[in-house]
Design a protein around this nucleic acid. Structure first.
Lengths: 229, 229
DNA sequence: TTTTGTGAACTAGTTCACAGCT
DNA sequence: AGCTGTGAACTAGTTCACAAAA
């Protein structure tokens, strides 16, 4: 480490977070989940080696991923589970409530609104938005209210919504994401098929179910001609 | 190309499909979608350059991806849209109906069963499976029947189901995927959070919504301390 | 001794640039 | 002339292997 005054820093003072790849940050989520499990099992301390073996990861990669953000380990000991968990939550910005709006109150949007996986770790789904007036004023089974898409900006400001989830048909997706961006939201999770454009400064992450299924189809087709286990 | 008798092949006779990376096959899906759009717009022929510009891709990468599977282009001309589309559908194994079962008739499972994106390009959702007897015998809004998970093997054989989608809570996911594998299914799309184990010869693809959301959270947290576009 | 943090080596993936076909 | 197919160059990501710390 070529830091000038070494004693002072535990957390790297201002890491070049832009150089951290998305693959690394995705893995941080995974590590956090592993640590939650370990803590639940009463484990107090774990080495990168043990963590790697237990969850089928690579020890060097764990250490490298963590080292972007600070020196969280203790040589000869490993990592304190509770400490590392706290650091990861802080790095991932999960040490506060993050409010999420879902755009599109169709089947998928309604399901996501009540999806338990979205509720844990500090996320709160505050509202659904739709353009269909029949849906506006209703709510999901779990009680998430459906608002008019035209009121998006108002609600985003009022409730300090910071993440939008796009669950509308492909045809309207670009229009909707433009509205979302105009409302000031800087992070978007998109479930519509196809590419969307966002201005710089807005982070778009897409989950393309068609691509996922077709990739499985390719695997099956390949297995039929080319018998490789 | 170091093929011995060059005249004979147009489609590469037996490409080493194992060497094709998942990134490449995912892109094939994307190319296919682009071609569908182009065909809809009446475009007959397209160069890799034009395709790349229109859809924000890299021309050399398109050519390289396609070249794993054959020589589909015509020098000086480009690719015939209809031809390339047909080849891609064949490579991806979409030139036949693929039957899909969804395990877990909760909010997410039901939504996926009726999701239009899953219906296109040769996929057919034949059934939902659940262990809750109150759900068995019901059906999704779109009319997909819910069967007992214990009858999975029977239905997989009867209907020749080749893909399973896992939409059950994390606690039961490994148990369910074991059942799926035992029923003879070789391709699984998993929506449960956390890692699952499958034997070799079974392809598992996971969509982890928690990881996706947390990656957005990281981006937002980073943006607050480190003001970068 | 144990285990971290990290440069070096390696592997995978992307883009360039051009020979060669149409 | 125009564009593909592809080796070569480059860039990104992973794993190794070891010096230094506890």
């Amino acid at each position: 480490m070529k830091q000038p005054n070494k004693a002072a820093i535990k957390l790297k003072s201002r890491p070049h977070l832009d150089q951290v790849s998305e693959l690394t940050t995705n893995r941080l989520s995974v590590y956090l989940r592993c640590l939650n499990q370990l803590e639940g099992a009463g484990v107090r301390t774990i080495s990168s080696q043990a963590l790697a073996e237990q969850f089928h990861l690579n020890a060097a990669q764990i250490r490298k991923d963590l080292a972007y953000f600070g020196e969280f380990g203790v040589r000869g000991v490993g990592y304190y589970v509770r400490d590392l968990k706290r650091h990861l939550r802080q790095i991932l910005g999960l040490d506060r409530k993050l409010r999420v709006a879902i755009i599109g109150a169709g089947n998928l949007g309604l399901a996501l609104a009540d999806y338990p996986g979205f509720r844990q770790e500090g996320f709160e789904i505050t509202a659904l938005f739709d353009s269909l007036s029949a849906k506006v004023g209703q709510q999901s089974r779990g009680g998430v209210p459906i608002h008019d898409i035209h009121d998006l900006k108002k609600f985003v400001r009022r409730d300090a919504v910071s993440i939008a989830v796009i669950a509308v048909p492909a045809e309207s997706a670009q229009r909707v994401v433009d509205l979302v961006v105009a409302s000031g939201i800087k992070a978007v999770l998109n479930f519509s098929p196809g590419a969307l454009e966002v201005p710089p400064g807005v982070k778009l992450k897409s989950v393309d179910l068609t691509v996922s299924l077709e990739s499985l189809s390719f695997y099956l087709a390949r297995g039929e001609t080319d018998e490789t286990g």
